[in-house]
């Protein structure tokens, strides 16, 4: 198992190296650049050229890449061209927001998705099953930003039940400990701050949860149906095991194997979905950083975000592989 983990971790290095080169060259091949973004209406050819010279952006891409790699190896991902802040500091600041949102969305998706999928499978063909299938189709099909605006227009602007955007009301003057707004309120016993953060979190989390929820429901349903028809379940039933035991210990546990793979994959998709959701709800997490960086051609920030995103994706996949071994005793990692 340890060798497996080590080997997989070592494979990450060439993957990231190749990716970093591609990202680096791709960004610089796009039209526009940080200089014209910085100068706006005031851009003149001379000024753009001057800024590019001062920033070293007039050098050949390979030279720039060499410098970039040299800095990255010392842990320096550079400074954002938009804010002048180190990108790692920025990412560290924004990460809790995105993690909080993604975890909330994932919790909604898993806690609702698995029981719903299971119920739909066990009442196959019934009204619950059919409405679940239709619901999941809609869930996958509705674009995140559209749903976000819809929820916001109705529940925040029209009814005023939830705040329309942001993570916490400014007037609360909440204490920041970990960067996780809900948790910070609990830790510091600022209960109103926690409650306010939960209210802010609700609409974005529901928005972000729709696609993973739909996917988890469908996979769970399919997987449970598949397992229920297999030989060992028939054997367990014919042995006279209590139906609850068969369902819990045999059907669900086996059916969860593909579900856990999907949950792992959803983590990556959550990060992608977070970009749109965060934009709609002005969430101020990684998605916001990414969107701003794309608009304003912030190369250092984009490079760091894309590389770290890839790293997370690879690591999550590794964790998924490891989780197989835990859920399914037949899987041996070598």
């Amino acid at each position: 198992m340890l060798r497996f983990v080590l080997r997989r971790l070592l494979q990450v290095i060439p993957t990231l190296l190749l990716l970093s080169l591609l990202v680096f060259a791709w960004l610089r091949s796009l039209p526009g650049g940080p200089a014209s973004a910085f100068l706006g209406d005031r851009a003149t050819p001379e000024r753009i050229a001057e800024l590019n010279r001062v920033l070293g952006l007039d050098q050949p891409v390979l030279v720039q890449y060499g410098r970039f790699l040299g800095r990255v190896l010392t842990g320096d991902f550079g400074v954002s061209t938009i804010t002048g802040q180190p990108v790692l500091t920025e990412i560290g600041r924004a990460l809790p927001a995105t993690v909080e949102l993604s975890v909330a969305a994932l919790l909604i998706a898993v806690l609702l998705g698995i029981p719903l999928g299971y119920l739909a499978a066990s009442k196959r063909g019934g009204p619950l099953d059919i409405s679940t299938i239709i619901g999941t189709l809609v869930g996958v099909a509705v674009p995140v930003f559209f749903l976000g605006y819809l929820l916001k227009a109705f529940f925040a602007v029209e009814l005023g039940w939830f705040p329309p955007s942001g993570r916490q009301a400014i007037a609360l003057d909440a204490t920041d400990v970990t960067g996780f707004a809900v948790l910070d309120g609990l830790l510091t016993r600022e209960w109103d701050a926690s409650w306010d953060a939960i209210l802010h979190l609700t609409l974005p989390a529901i928005t972000l949860a729709t696609i993973p929820l739909a996917v988890i429901v469908r996979i769970t349903r399919a997987s449970v149906l598949d397992v229920m028809g297999s030989d060992f379940v028939r054997t367990a039933n014919s042995k006279g095991l209590a139906p609850g035991t068969v369902r819990g210990r045999h059907v669900l546990r086996n059916a969860l194997l593909p579900v856990s793979t999907v949950i792992g994959l959803q983590v990556g998709l959550l990060l992608a979905g977070a970009v749109l959701t965060e934009k709609v709800f002005v969430w101020g997490g990684l998605g916001t950083l990414l969107a701003d960086a794309i608009t304003l051609k912030d190369y250092p920030r984009l490079q760091a975000l894309l590389l770290l995103g890839a790293l997370v994706y690879v690591l999550v996949n590794l964790l998924v592989d490891l989780s197989y071994a835990i859920i399914d005793p037949r899987v041996r990692l070598t």
């Binding site: 602007v157 942001g166 002005v282």
Partner: peptide
Amino acid sequence: LIFKVIPDENARKQELQAGT
């Protein structure tokens, strides 16, 4: 005097309507 950064124009409008 507080400046709250809300890059999205639509979000600014909704924050105003919501009174924040």
